[in-house]
């Protein structure tokens, strides 16, 4: 019974973290069509923002604005120098951001060194839930993620910005004709997306390894989640995270991690083949 509760908690946690990690890419790839291979590097920048705050001895909560500042600045520069020339050329964004990913990794390596950094555990210790001792920080993180997504869902449905981005993506010419500043909106969307990735990095940093190459872990699974779920909607993102995260947790529990990893790849291939528009396809 306890074991089932543990697996259940792990399942929920895994899905939530995947959704958090993918969110930034969902904005950049799902809305703008930029195949951002540097997505993981922005998560890494977020984690290093947390490191800066920790080394300065400041309260951890300040890592969040720090990550927005760092990722926003880098995002602005990247958009201005590279991305804005490449909208609607997805394969080229893939290549250019692959190069950017290397640049960002090397810049961080130059500034902080190649070695592993340890972000102190926040809320150490465990809390008993459903008879299972579960790490307190994870539970807190779950609450934050759920609140974040609830807020986003409400905001995106209600706000004009969401509609504008949708309009711009579906028909850029028309959008600019009706007075939407597409260049500005694209830039803002890109910066928003990479900043969200940075925030994910801050939130995850106390749990994971922190080093310049950590971003690769998050990159490919993020793409698969997006395509399985369907691009351009928060619901699709959640569905994708559930399918990929669920497959991994269940298969890894029954068999082993290698089988879990292989089944993620196979499921992704099947979805890409049979349901390329995703489970939660937009009409």
């Amino acid at each position: 019974m306890e074991l089932i509760a543990l697996y259940g908690l792990n399942l929920v946690y895994t899905i939530a973290v995947l959704a958090l990690v993918v969110l930034g890419l969902a904005v950049v790839f799902g809305l703008l069509g930029v195949m951002n291979m540097a997505h993981g590097e922005f998560i890494m920048l977020g984690a290093y923002s947390a490191l800066i705050i920790q080394q300065a001895g400041l309260p951890y909560i300040l890592a969040l604005p720090m990550a927005v500042l760092v990722c926003g600045t880098v995002g602005f520069l990247v958009e201005y120098a590279v991305i804005r020339h490449l909208y609607r050329r997805p394969f080229d964004t893939l290549l250019a951001t692959w190069g950017l990913a290397i640049l960002i990794r090397k810049a961080v390596e130059g500034a902080f060194g190649r070695d592993y950094k340890s972000i102190e555990q926040r809320l150490p210790g465990t809390v008993s839930v459903l008879g299972v001792d579960y790490p307190a920080y994870r539970l807190a993180l779950l609450v934050v993620i759920v609140a974040l997504f609830a807020g986003l869902l409400i905001w995106y449905r209600r706000s004009n910005t969401g509609a504008r981005i949708k309009a711009m993506v579906q028909n850029p010419a028309l959008a600019s004709a009706v007075g939407i500043d597409t260049a500005f909106l694209s830039r803002a969307t890109f910066i928003f997306g990479v900043s969200v990735a940075g925030l994910a990095g801050v939130l995850l940093a106390p749990l994971v390894r922190v080093e310049p190459y950590m971003g690769l872990d998050y990159l490919l699974s993020s793409f698969f989640i997006l395509v399985v779920g369907g691009l351009g909607s928060l619901e699709g993102l959640l569905v994708g995270s559930t399918v990929i995260g669920g497959t991994d947790v269940v298969v890894s529990a029954i068999s082993d991690k290698t089988a879990g990893y292989l089944s993620i790849l196979i499921i992704s291939i099947l979805f890409l083949w049979l349901r390329p528009n995703g489970l939660y396809a937009k009409r």
Binding site: M35, P90, F91, L220, F223, F224, V227, T258, Y261, L262, L265, I266, S268, I269, L272, W273, L274, P276
Partner: peptide
């Protein structure tokens, strides 16, 4: 199999081949 179901040259085929290479590496 893939092109029979999808026309165009979107990223889906590319991602399938990418996943296959990752599968190959792991195997």
């Amino acid at each position: 199999l893939v092109f029979n179901r999808q026309t165009g040259s979107g990223p889906y085929f590319s991602l399938i081949t990418l996943a296959l290479a990752m599968l190959g590496f792991q195997l």
